[in-house]
Design a protein around this nucleic acid. Structure first.
Lengths: 141, 141
DNA sequence: TCAAAGAATAGATTTAATCTAAATATAGAT
DNA sequence: ATCTATATTTAGATTAAATCTATTCTTTGA
């Protein structure tokens, strides 16, 4: 519950033409404060202890709205819920099939496309899947 | 229900060390016969009219087994079920946010990685999202 | 021919996400 | 300020994908 991330969230909402309600600020700032690519439910639980509490539907509504407006990114991978990422510039992700963690990959993504075979490209992402560093160590034991 | 795709499916199963039961051959050959990246349920319905019928659980079990053994690929995108692809070499996909179609992108994927920041890379994919050619046309009207 | 392992099955259950319909809050007009 | 229309939030019901359970059927090989 960081004051500066709430301020940033409010600014981002205004810039996207979304009115910055208390609930929306809470949801977006919770996402800004972590790099763990949380699920809607994780955010809901994180905010659950607040007064006033926020309903589950609002968390989902807000996240979906933010994705639609291009403020945040969503991703799904086999066997887990939708996960959200506040970094909206094109970047890469590594999905661990064991622990389900998602790592940001710094490596530069190739050329940014706006069109491909006649399709309009709105976002692009390099997806790597496998076994993360930590889980590899675990396996060795 | 193509004879040659069933033969191919049987070969692929054997190569992966999976015993080629009637049901597994049916599921895999159904996937080989299409380039539409079907969902488990789509495959289930396609096979539903066969005698003997195949249960839903078997379709799911088989697809999951094939993904685990690296015989096929699975992918999820926001707002739709898991979709399957029999092409296992690294390639790119375009996801249409409107009609939910998935297009294969011929364009060569960059360098093939086997390791990244210490993580073991088992598969990699370029994911483009946006509005497909057809839906763009629809919008113009 | 029997035991043990491997597969398949129907239907119940789980879980993520959405929907519904009602309650609250906000903004703009008068 | 007060009224009205619109926007937002809410709890709980509903939906839909996927998994689980526990039983049945098949295959294998001693």
């Amino acid at each position: 519950m960081n004051k500066s991330s709430q301020c940033e969230a409010s600014e981002m909402l205004k810039r996207a033409g979304i009115s910055p309600s208390y609930q929306r600020i809470m949801v977006l700032s919770a996402l800004l404060e972590t790099d763990e690519h949380p699920s809607a439910d994780t955010i809901y639980k994180k905010l659950g202890s607040n007064i006033p509490a926020i309903s589950r539907a609002t968390v989902y509504n807000t996240l979906n709205l933010l994705v639609d407006r291009g403020v945040i990114q969503s991703m799904r991978t086999a066997g887990s819920e939708t996960r959200f990422d506040s970094i909206c510039e094109a970047h890469s992700h590594f999905f661990c099939r064991k622990c389900k963690k998602i790592y940001d990959i710094a490596k530069q993504i190739g050329e940014i496309k706006t069109e491909l075979d006649g399709h309009l490209v709105e976002s692009q992402e390099f997806v790597y899947k496998g076994l993360c560093r930590e889980c590899r160590e675990e396996m060795k034991k």
